[in-house]
Design a protein around this nucleic acid. Structure first.
Lengths: 143, 143
DNA sequence: AAAAAATCCGGCAAATTGCCGGTTAATGCA
DNA sequence: TGCATTAACCGGCAATTTGCCGGATTTTTT
């Protein structure tokens, strides 16, 4: 993983469907060298594949972030609420005004609202801010 | 979005770097027809771009969320700032006060601060709220 | 029903790719 | 150090792919 590989990956991050020639020009390498390197990056598993990025509306379901503020002395005591919700993908304790940032992906807006109400029923939770995801610009998580 | 577009997108989902000819064969259409359809899907915004899927890098380091508020008429004009930062894992347009929620994973706090400063130099960006991830309670993203 | 628009196809020139041998640089070993 | 081995790079060539165009066909509009 030298600077050439870095440059190649950087180029592919911006547009995975561009010609090897174009990448080679940016990386200051011959096209065959870049071609070989990409092949190797694929074979060694550094590159797992290439994905098309669709506008959020084309995907089934709704994604959202919940900002959570609670009054539990320890976060751990409230996390089990989110562990019980299968739609929750991540839950992070963060710095700032709010305590937790929860990322969910629900099959429908109705279900999303249901989840929000379910969270709201818990008395330890003081405040919920909902942020519906309207567009996905970058996703390098690989799921 | 008829069944042909569906087939094209399905093919691109499996491998975004394959020839239009290969897609055309799967979709039972001529190459030029598929080429035109892809171009239209890109122009109408259904297809936002193409990304390379990388294997998860190192687990050590610092994660953080940036809440971003900007003054660009279109989000797309500001997104390239984040595409240029390899540490950026996701970038979502969200509802609420702020416009974008950016998730990053940096190898060190120093580097994280560097990224924040780099984002700050961009004049289109009005406001940045940084939330350092202090604990990860749930991660069902698969990698 | 006629006109307009959209979609499709196939052909051709230009661009890209895969593959090959030849050259150079890096590495290993006596 | 000297030499062999490996790895990486380059450029050329044939095959494939792409972009673009005109013309045919279908769909929509008036």
């Amino acid at each position: 993983m030298d600077k050439f590989d870095q440059a190649i990956i950087q180029a592919l991050r911006e547009d995975a469907r561009q010609s090897v020639s174009a990448i080679a020009e940016r990386a200051n390498l011959s096209r065959s060298a870049v071609s070989d390197r990409i092949k190797k990056l694929e074979q060694t598993g550094v590159i797992r594949g290439y994905q098309v990025l669709l506008s959020e509306s084309q995907k089934e379901g709704v994604s959202a972030y919940f900002e959570i503020q609670h009054k539990c002395p320890r976060c751990a005591d409230v996390v089990h609420v989110f562990q019980a919700i299968p739609e929750v993908l991540t839950c992070h304790g963060i710095s700032g005004d709010m305590d937790l940032l929860v990322y969910v992906h629900a099959p429908s807006m109705r279900r999303l609202h249901e989840i929000r109400e379910y969270i709201d029923t818990h008395t330890d939770i003081i405040k919920i801010k909902t942020h519906v995801v309207m567009s996905e610009w970058i996703n390098n998580l690989g799921s």
